[in-house]
Design a protein around this nucleic acid. Structure first.
Lengths: 344, 344
DNA sequence: GGAAAAAGGTTAAGCGCTTAACTATAGATT
DNA sequence: AATCTATAGTTAAGCGCTTAACCTTTTTCC
């Protein structure tokens, strides 16, 4: 591999000149600049990034990290969309993207990750950090390394979706359709910070309609499709008169749909089902799922922008992105009183 | 950040000693080893990876790359599973994982990617490389950098799923169920190398049953759900007597299911539908999709193992992984002759 | 016309680590 | 006793790049 020195020799200048020309420093004649660039082209010189990193202290690598916990985050299309948003931004700005999925051991990210944080290899971190039991951004923050959090663990810079508004919109939609016997498929609040936000939104909407939220039947799943089906089964046997199920993520909503199909309860005629996330599958299943889109791609993109801004010395503002209810085929007005379940 | 020298000073030894102790070189007394490790712990030393990389020529970073083409690979759960497989192996062996998605400009991966390849930043590449129009592994291979290809672009080391066997199994299953009026939803062979393999498998199975493959109705989509629906519509209007649709990926199969739902054609009673890939959605839709599982996680895992073996001086063998037909609810024996579509 | 400022470039000192080459001592071998 | 070898460490030369400090020539300005 040719080095800076080879280029310098060929162009008949010093290595400093080559280095500065390549990084576009002013005060060089057109002639010199051309000579250098010519030499670079001729010998096919490409800078050695490790050397550049050691010397300049900047690696041009940022990391996207999320803890390896619960029902594999990897299985979550939501994460993929965020990743895509980050990638698109990095690609545009010439940054490289490293992926790390620290395992959590005794409440701490694993050793290898902690080393990575301090290794100087990473200019900045974007962390998907909403699992209350452990923070992956905390060690980064503690070492003063630039970081942006997507989620609710404390950080100066963050990107969040407005989960409270999302919860509100979902519940409001259901109430507007006339439903009052509403089951909620939630997740234990200890699993994800956003859950309490979404629940707060549901509650606010219910109260706006004079409905006591605490009287609504609720079951707790774990985000997975299977748990959604189980929760639906549980709610339906305890409360056969429900006309709507509000689920705090799409995969559980899809599980609920399965369970309803098994029980031959038609959606949306006999039961309205609402999801949350708007994963790609939501649009292509039958019936297509009414859900809350939280702009995952945009979350990733904004987080990357924010981080790169920080790296370039700016001081961006944290962002809370709006969400949007996407009404599809799984929600409908409450069935007419005459329409009983069996007869439907 | 503390450096090797700080550790050396504190432990009262030379930097060489510290370096060698940390990399577990023999010929050091227990006493020295302990002193060094003690000092490391006391001052919280973590090696600077850029320096290590520059000096040793090894960065401990491998890259997973795939071209940014057609119906966003990012949207493909298959890719995600591969990524997960790679990550799990990297994590175990202490490697870091970089993600790169080169854009293809005039038949070549973009400049930034080509620089990355030659930058010395990446110890080895795993490429998802099956798009005939451009190879992302070719420049890597050309520069003599260790690489493993998942797919069909030429490489000394590769991991492949047995697409031909997969095609065979899918078609064989349909034929065994008694179907003979079979529509094929394919993709233009110029979009992906695996397509011709799968088609060859279909053909072989058809011929084993004495069926002329070329007489079967076929439509070409582009892997997307929407295109699957369009292809199904086209095939059904041209050939209303079809009893089975074999689709060369799951998303198109799901599109076909949608279209059948719209036309009130019941699956599997009136129509058998087969997919390919076994993406997570395949298992949770109604009806659950019969499809070919190609072990995406394992492909990623084996590719990573292979690459790390190469980096450690071994010479692994290329692998073609077996595939497995997963029979679910979307396939059934050909309807009895009396059972017409309308009456079904 | 002379001083200051700008333009165009070079020298050389690192960045923090690895490793080849070397020194020195203790025990084993002949 | 002399030689060899294994053990236990040190010295110092890079790896390829950036950049502060410095030098020289040209331009600008009063």
């Amino acid at each position: 591999m040719p080095t800076l020195e080879d280029v310098a020799r060929r162009a008949g200048v010093s290595t400093a000149t080559v280095s500065k020309v390549l990084s576009n420093t002013p005060y060089f004649s057109e002639r010199t600049r051309a000579k250098v660039l010519q030499a670079v082209k001729e010998i096919g010189y490409v800078p050695n990034l490790a050397a550049r990193a050691l010397s300049s202290g900047k690696t041009q690598i940022i990391a996207f990290v999320f803890p390896y916990v619960y029902d594999a985050l990897f299985a979550d299309p939501f994460v993929l969309l965020i990743l895509e948003g980050i990638e698109s931004e990095c690609h545009q700005r010439g940054y490289n993207l490293l992926l790390s999925t620290p395992r959590i051991v005794s409440g701490q990210p694993d050793e290898h990750y902690l080393q990575l944080v301090q290794s100087g290899y990473i200019d900045g971190f974007i962390a998907l950090d909403s699992v209350p039991s452990a923070s992956v951004v905390e060690p980064v923050f503690a070492h003063g390394i630039p970081s942006v959090t997507i989620g609710y663990h404390p950080n100066t810079f963050f990107v969040r979706a407005d989960d409270c508004a999302g919860g509100f919109q979902a519940m409001d939609h259901v109430l507007k359709l006339g439903h009052r016997r509403i089951g909620v498929i939630s997740v234990n609040e200890s699993l994800h910070f956003s859950i309490s936000q979404r629940l707060a939104g549901l509650r606010a909407a219910a109260e706006a309609y004079g409905l006591d939220f605490d009287t609504l039947p609720m079951a707790e799943g774990d985000f997975s499709t299977a748990s959604g089906a189980a929760c639906a089964a549980e709610l339906l046997s305890r409360h056969p008169d429900l006309t709507a199920l509000v689920c705090l993520n799409d995969r559980m909503a899809i599980g609920a749909l399965q369970q309803l199909h098994v029980r031959a309860i038609r959606v949306p005629d006999q039961m309205t089902v609402i999801g949350y996330d708007d994963i790609p599958t939501a649009a292509i299943i039958v019936p297509p799922l009414t859900t809350v889109n939280q702009q995952a791609f945009r979350q990733g993109q904004e987080a990357a922008r924010m981080l790169l801004d920080i790296l370039n010395g700016r001081s961006p503002q944290p962002i809370t992105l709006p969400v949007e209810l996407v009404v599809r085929g799984s929600s409908a007005p409450v069935p007419a009183p005459g329409l009983t379940r069996k007869g439907g």
